[in-house]
Design a protein around this nucleic acid. Structure first.
Ligand SMILES: [Mn+2]
Ligand SMILES: [Mn+2]
Ligand SMILES: [Zn+2]
Ligand SMILES: [Zn+2]
Lengths: 149, 149
DNA sequence: CAACTAAATGCAACAATGTTGCATTTAGTT
DNA sequence: AACTAAATGCAACATTGTTGCATTTAGTTG
């Protein structure tokens, strides 16, 4: 919810402003990675105008507070879905609908750290994106395939 | 080696050109992620001039052939170090010196796929970057720390 | 509630990065 | 040496990202 993010902002000493609420609302609603200019365009369409500089600065802040994430394979920003303890970020990215789901798995981090340690590397945290199909898109794909069989 | 990459180019029906050799040479030499314009600047410094459009097109091609990779946390391009069977890409990124080392681990992929499958997701391949310290930087860090103790 | 102030925003100007169409050049072939 | 598809360069353009500074505003204080 946007509400909780605003509480987090305030508790960290940042002001709750129109810009910050609007950006969070768009990210919440869309649930796909959005670039700063994407966000500006979407807001425009709903009659709200925000300077792109403000959007950049807002996204910077949201990411610093782990209220949003910068997706790397796809390049946009999404709403953070988990409460963050460690610094490891893992995502499933659906190549069908573009939706993204965040997850955490300590055992996996542990295994990955072990592998890199064996190669002499001292890992502090991980970033990973798994590319594939979400349940919906997988089902649709199966249906479509069976149509032609 | 650049030589092998050129052989690969030719065997795939692409021409071996000055641009392609130069871009590969820079990537080989530097071993850190370089942006297209980084590459242009480095070449400039050694008296070689390449149009930035050509560099973009060259990097596109090298990536399509898995002769280079586009790094996501850091944003630049690096030389591919492994022969690619599957589509999974994993890297260790040193936050000390910026160097990058590529690795592959089937067991890890298997585990990660299992975790996402339990969440209803059908994973096709993975991309991950482990952030930490390479052996050299880790050693240096230890030495520096002991200086002040 | 009115005054106050540090923080946030907007604006303008700029810098960097990335894309497209088309004329020219060139690698590899005949 | 001639040929040709592929690659390059160039120009023009589009998009994305950054900085300094004047103005506005959220949250606080009296
Ligand atoms: Mn998160
Ligand atoms: Mn590789
Ligand atoms: Zn989907
Ligand atoms: Zn290092």
């Amino acid at each position: 919810m946007v509400q909780e993010a605003m509480v987090e902002l305030r508790s960290q000493g940042y002001k709750v402003t129109r810009s910050r609420r609007l950006v969070m609302e768009v990210l919440d609603k869309v649930d796909k990675p959005l670039s700063p200019y994407d966000i500006q365009r979407l807001l425009q369409q709903q009659g709200e105008s925000l300077n792109h500089v403000t959007i950049y600065r807002t996204l910077d802040l949201l990411c610093r507070l782990n209220l949003a994430h910068h997706m790397l394979l796809t390049g946009g920003f999404i709403r953070c879905a988990l409460s963050h303890q460690g610094g490891c970020h893992r995502f499933m990215v659906c190549r069908g609908c573009g939706s993204i789901r965040e997850f955490i798995d300590d055992a996996l981090c542990h295994e990955e750290s072990g592998i890199t340690r064996d190669l002499g590397f001292h890992t502090e945290h991980h970033y990973s994106e798994s590319l594939g199909l979400c349940p919906d898109c997988y089902r649709k794909r199966l249906e479509k395939d069976s149509t032609y069989n």
